[in-house]
């Protein structure tokens, strides 16, 4: 892949920072589930995870599983600088999940000229840097989400 060193080039993607506040999300992702944190008091959804609800300040929370149906809110196509964890040009999207929260993930399998805010996408999962299984945006499969 590269002649830069015997071990190959190293990604600059930092290792995930797993904390007591976000561990549930990464555990679910590893198992192919997209979870959204929900306030145990006022039921407001929130992402990225945080220890308390910004609306009612409750520390009580549970999660809901997302349908993984999403629409593209904004996007970029990255050309430079390249990182060995990705192939370039690399499309990355910000989506509105059907449940109402947003999510960032890379976009796979869609020609970049087709990307338009508002288009329907689906959240799948794929291996990322350091072997982490994380969300990836794709064309909707058409079948059950």
């Amino acid at each position: 892949m590269s002649d830069r060193s015997q071990d190959g080039p190293r990604t600059s993607v930092p290792r995930l920072i797993i904390t007591q506040d976000n561990e549930f999300w990464f555990t679910a992702a590893r198992e192919g589930r997209l979870e959204i944190q929900r306030c145990g008091e006022c039921r407001t959804l929130r992402h990225p995870p945080a220890p308390s609800c910004p609306r009612c300040r409750s520390f009580v929370w549970d999660t809901v599983e997302s349908s993984r149906r999403a629409t593209l809110h904004s996007y970029t196509v990255i050309h430079h600088p390249p990182d060995p964890a990705f192939e370039y040009p690399l499309a990355v999207g910000l989506v509105d999940l059907e449940e109402g929260t947003r999510l960032v993930a890379d976009i796979a399998g869609i020609p970049h000229e087709e990307l338009t805010p508002g288009m329907e996408l689906e959240v799948g999962f794929a291996e990322h840097a350091h072997g982490d299984v994380l969300p990836q945006l794709r064309r909707p499969s058409g079948g059950a989400a």
Binding site: L16, T76, I78, D83, A85, V92, A129, L134
Partner: peptide, 9 residues
């Protein structure tokens, strides 16, 4: 966690 793993570096 919410940007770097997807290529926003």
């Amino acid at each position: 966690n919410w940007i770097n793993p997807y290529g926003l570096l």
